[in-house]
């Protein structure tokens, strides 16, 4: 499973990297960039919080 950010929807609120700093980091505009796309049991809960925190609904978990 991977965490992905839809660049067309992200406007840089910064809540994803606030709740999941090991998975997402800010770029130089404050937009979220995924740094650890592959999710394991330990990071799934954090990534779910990043998904539900995003007011733009730009973050999702993809099950390949």
């Amino acid at each position: 499973m991977r965490i992905v950010i839809d660049a067309a929807l992200c406007t840089g609120h910064g809540l994803c990297y606030a709740v999941a700093p090991a998975l997402v980091a800010p770029d130089d505009r404050g937009y979220g960039v995924v740094v650890a796309p592959e999710l394991d049991a330990g990071s799934l809960e954090r990534s779910r919080r990043a998904v539900s925190s995003c007011p733009e609904r730009a973050v999702s978990i993809v099950d390949d």
Partner: peptide, 13 residues
Amino acid sequence: RSPNPHLGFGLGL
């Protein structure tokens, strides 16, 4: 509170 997708800073572009 979590999640807290409030609109206090606005939203969109």
